[in-house]
Structure formats: C-alpha cells, structure tokens
Design a protein around this nucleic acid. Structure first.
Lengths: 343, 343
DNA sequence: CCTGACCTTTGGATCGATCCAGGCCGCCCG
DNA sequence: CGGGCGGCCTGGATCGATCCAAAGGTCAGG
C-alpha cells in the first residue's frame, strides 16, 4: 500500500492517507471534516467516501496540539469518603458525562488531597491536559474559584459562590431552600402543623439555605418554629439523637431533614419507639439517595435535577470555550419531591 | 522577554523557554525530564532550576503526538440505571482514579448505549484518545473482550471471562463464591443450620458463582440445601417475595443473599412479620453498599476489596503498556465480611 | 602525538493535524 | 480584451514535544 514507509499495519489512517485515496490535498480533507461548506459538493462527497472507507478519525493529540484545545474537562472527585453525598455525586457524574458527550467533550477524572482543594488542578492546567474544569465542592467556600480565575482557567461551578456573591464565574446550583419549602408544604397539606427541622451545623451555607426553606414555609402559615429546629453533624447517629430530643421536647408530628442520612437517623428513632414512619410521624429527606428508595417504608425525599444541572454546566462550558467566550451567569434550578411511604 | 514572538503572555512555558533560560538545547531539557541520568550533574541541576523557576510542565498534546501515547485509560460507565450495582461502581471508580494517578494515568469516562456494549470504544480507539480501556460490564458475557482483542486494543477487565475461560486478556475479579462461603460460615458459627439462599436467575454467571459458595459451605457440614434456595430478579420486591415463600415453606433461620438489594427485601419481610433481623432471623447481603451501612439494624454484607481490584487492574495496564508488553493473567481476590447487626 | 572509545550535548527531522498565504480557474464588467 | 474578484484547492510552516544521528570534548592506550 502507499502508506508512509514506517507505519505499523495496525496504525490508524491519517489525513494524508485519506488525501491520497481521495486524490486531494491534506488541507482539503481537513476542510471536509471541519468546514464542509468550503468544498464543492462533488469533492466533499469523494472525500467523505474515502474517510468512510478508511475509517478515518482525526488523531486527537495532533489536533489538540495544533488547536491548543483538548476537548477534555476535568472533574475532581473527592477521595472516597464512603458516606455522605457520594450518591449524588455519582448521579451527577453520569449526567455530566452524557451531557458533555453531546457537546463534544469528554470528562477526565482526578482526585486530590481532600484537605487541600487545589491539588490536582495545577498540573492539569500547566500541562494543558484539560480545557476547563467543573468544580463541585464549593461548600468548602471556594478557594478554587478565585485561584482558577487568577490563572485564567475556564471553569463552571456546581454550587453557588456562597462566600462571594459578586463572583463573576458561571455557576449552576439547585435551590435547596425551594426544595425544603416544597417538602414542608407537602407536609402542611397533609395536615401537619408541628414540623421539625434537622439540619447541619450553622457554618454550612447549604445547610442554612435549606433550613430557610423550611422556615419560610412555616412562617407563611404563621406557624411557630422555635424549639423545632436542630443543627448537627451529617451522620445517622446525629439524626437519631436530634430526633429523640425533638420528639421529647417539642412533640413534632413531622420532620424535614437536610439530608437522607439525617432522615435515616429519624427513622431509626421512630423504629426504636415503636412508631411507624408515615403513619405516626412523617419524615422527608434530601437527595433522593439509593437508601431513600429501598428503605422501609420508602423515604420521601427532595430530588435534585442533576441531569438538568449537568446540561446547564455544559452550556456554561460551551459559553466559556466558545468563540467569542460568553461571560455566563448563575443558574438556579428547582428540585422536585419524590414521594414515598414516609409521609 | 525572549519568548517566541506570537505567544500570549499567559501561555505556559515550553521546552524552548526552559532551554534558553538554562542555556542548553531543547533536547537536553527533554532529557532532564525523561532521562536525568544522561546529564552531567551540574547541567541537570541548572536545568531543573530553570524548570522550577518557570513552572514548566511538558505539554500533553505535543508529548502524546510524538510518543503515540495519551496516558489516559477509558472507562465506560453504564447509563445511570439508578439502582443496582451503581454504588459498587462508584467505589471502584474512585479507587481506579487513585490507583491510576500513581501510575501516571488519568481516567477518561464515557458512556454508551446500555444495550450495545460496544458503542463508544471505537471512536476513542480510532482517534487514539486513550491508551487502553478498563472494561467492567463483563456480566453480559463480554463481546467487548473479543472485539477489543481483534483491534489489538489493550484492555484489562474487572470481571472474569465467564463465557470463555481460555481468554488470554488480563482480568481481575473478586471471588464471589469465597465471599458467600465466608458469609455462610459466619452464620454456621453463630449456630444457624437452616440457611437459605436468595440469588439471581440462573443465567447470571456471577449469581451462580456466589451461590456455589453458599452451597459449598452447607455441604461441608452435610447440611441440606434443597428447598432452601431461590433465584429471582435483583430487586427489593423480589427479595421480599422470595423470603416470604422461603420462610413459609422451609423455615430457615438465616438468609444469605446475592446482593444488598435482595437482602433489603428480606429485611422488609421480617419487619412485616414483626421479626427482628439479627435476633430472630439473620441476614447477610453482598456489596456492602451505603444501604447496608445505614439501615436498621445494620446489614452484614460481603465487601469487595475494590481498592485492591483497582490496584491490580492498574498493574495489568502497566504490564500491557510497558516495554516490552507483559501478557498478564487473571487475578482473583477474596472479599471480606463487614459484620453488622443483622447477623 | 594520534586514534578510538566514551560521555555529554546538539540540531534537524518527525508525529498528524490546522493555520496561512497564495495559486489556479472561470466569470463578470469596464 | 484585460483586470478584478470570488470560489476552490494546494503547499509550506507550525504547534511542542521526542527520536535519531552525529558533533564536540575528554581520556586512556599505543
């Protein structure tokens, strides 16, 4: 064959191979791929035929080198902390990979020291391995955001810039307050009046945001909230402890929780006391995790629209990486309520 | 500055920049990075200083182009099926990303049509976007394996080549039979004699493998197994149904299940009947999922050593991609038992 | 003092794509 | 009839690294 001399027989075909087969120049083949409308119709057809016959696909490395773009987005996943919001992350990753593919991007995963939110970003950036990042762990405050902005690294955040509302980077977030308001209203419609809140410690912006939804719903009906709220760590044991205290001291008929983990704690307390979730006491969680779906009698839970989040994130990326780059602002999405036996 | 003319001020430094600063040629810098022992000590030091001062890191695209390697491994994740083995996959992905990093690889995610196990692989391969694949969904049988081998694409499988024991590709798997044997023995030690099995339908190799562990343990003590086994779909409802029938017809005092999902079904049945898991009836699941950890009273479960699996997978990759490529064979790892209240 | 082997360093070619400037051709219009 | 213009296509240069062959220097041995 008329392949260049030193190529292994299994090496994928190159532009030059296609060009030779179609009887045109390399540049014409390149145009057929990237700017088809520059070619005369019959030439285009001839080139496309050759492409198809050879099974040609542009070599990524070469294209990346020349265009200074990798078509990869980096996503840092936290070292498996075996517990909390992992399930949410998992769903998000799936959605992101899907949404990215449609925009011509692939997702590159990396990890870093959980205590240092910056590890990993720098190397990928300096070696031009990715075009942009998707930043997810903004609940820590987000040093990444300002750090990345300083280096002019394009990124989109899943999570609001809580600590800096005037930040100008694009972000997408789910309205946790609206979600908890939805949950609380749902309970109000079912006739509950003393609805307790179990959330996270006060230094969590997300936790306070979600709490505000519960608070808003209660206030809209002039219902009391004092003594009905508790703020603890995000563990099953904490949820259990908090619900015991609340049951003893405030006699709520329902609980809204900042997470499914806490809600599981409530379910444990109820079972301990011979109370039936959904009949005696209602419980609503947050995240619609696996657990919520399989636990008895099914845990009603606020479900984040992660597929939409991923789509919006990708839109943000396209804006940043497009020509010309579009600035892009924040997007806030509203969650839904997955109803099950616990309410 | 003495940068090449048309470079943007934010562009990362190149080999040429470092070379100029250190007063050596490009090749010498390249050697400093890739073959330090070729340089005289003082030259090396000077070059390394320049590298550090400029914060130089080799451009990935350029290196990839020249070396015909991307240092990326592709991992296909199934379209979110929102349920079953997802949690396991999540843990595995984390571990794989970690293990890969230490070997200098990054993980590239992609998805495909869940019904067609081949979509996605081809494009990545032809565009030389990845060096190798990690294949996980071998429970479907593995058309990928033979397909990839045909195209001389390096890959390592997580999962045995059930349908073709003579396959020569490297693989890593967890000994499900040993896991279930462990679980059964644990129950035997606790005095149980009538131990029931709830597993998957007979066409699942993994399911039959796990079942054989239970069977082996029972037979080692000459205990009967007839009437004590059930094979159903992998859903909570199926587990519930199967356990109801078994309780009525075979009076087991314990259940070993092929998955945590099925075990959850058993827990539901017990609760329905006012029986207490762990006190009245023991239950053991498989996968040590999130659910097993938070459900009441804690579900004893077989835990796959996914961190080790990932390390072995990466070893396999290094073997395949090394010089010279090492053939590599199968590796079978033994799971452990995470004990909780249900047994 | 010369030769050859060895150690260190160098310049040019190369990977496979895209950018850029320019060439060819046919057509319109002065 | 000739210049100009737009449509289509081409060859050379380029992205930033590594491969390769060979140059310059040092040193031992003849």
């Amino acid at each position: 064959m008329s392949r260049l001399p030193g190529r292994a027989p299994t090496a994928p075909p190159t532009l030059a191979d296609v060009a030779e087969r179609a009887g045109v120049s390399r540049q014409t083949v390149s145009n057929a791929v990237n700017n088809p409308d520059l070619l005369r119709a019959d030439t285009l057809e001839r080139v496309q035929l050759a492409i198809a016959e050879l099974g040609y696909l542009p070599n990524r490395a070469a294209r990346n080198l020349r265009t200074r773009a990798s078509h990869l987005v980096g996503l840092r996943i936290n070292a498996a902390q075996e517990g909390t919001a992992n399930a949410t992350m998992d769903r998000f990753v799936h959605s992101l990979v899907d949404a990215s593919r449609e925009a011509g991007y692939h997702v590159l995963l990396f990890t870093g020291d959980p205590l240092d939110p910056l590890t990993g970003y720098d190397d990928l950036l300096r070696s031009t391995a990715v075009d942009a990042f998707v930043v997810t762990d903004t609940y820590l405050g987000n040093p990444q955001a300002s750090w990345l902005r300083e280096r002019r690294a394009p990124f989109v955040a899943f999570g609001r810039p809580w600590d800096n509302p005037s930040a100008t980077h694009p972000w997408v977030d789910v309205d946790g307050a609206a979600g908890c308001e939805l949950a609380t209203q749902h309970l109000l419609e079912r006739g509950h009046r003393r609805i307790a809140w179990i959330g996270w410690r006060k230094d969590s912006w997300i936790g306070e945001d979600r709490r505000s939804g519960w608070h808003r719903a209660m206030k809209s009906r002039d219902l009391p909230t004092t003594g009905l709220a508790s703020r603890v760590e995000d563990t099953v044991a904490s949820g259990r402890g908090a619900s015991e205290v609340l049951l003893d001291e405030a006699q709520p008929s329902a609980f809204v929780c900042a997470s499914d983990t806490l809600a599981m704690g409530v379910l444990h307390t109820l079972a301990d006391r011979g109370l039936v979730a959904g009949r005696d006491i209602a419980v609503v969680g947050f995240d619609d995790s696996q657990v919520a779906q399989v636990v008895r009698p099914g845990l009603t839970s606020v479900r984040q629209p992660l597929e939409e989040v991923a789509m919006e994130v990708v839109k943000g990326l396209e804006g940043l990486l497009g020509h010309p780059p579009a600035p892009g602002r924040g997007v806030l999405l509203t969650p839904t309520l997955a109803m099950r036996g616990s309410s």
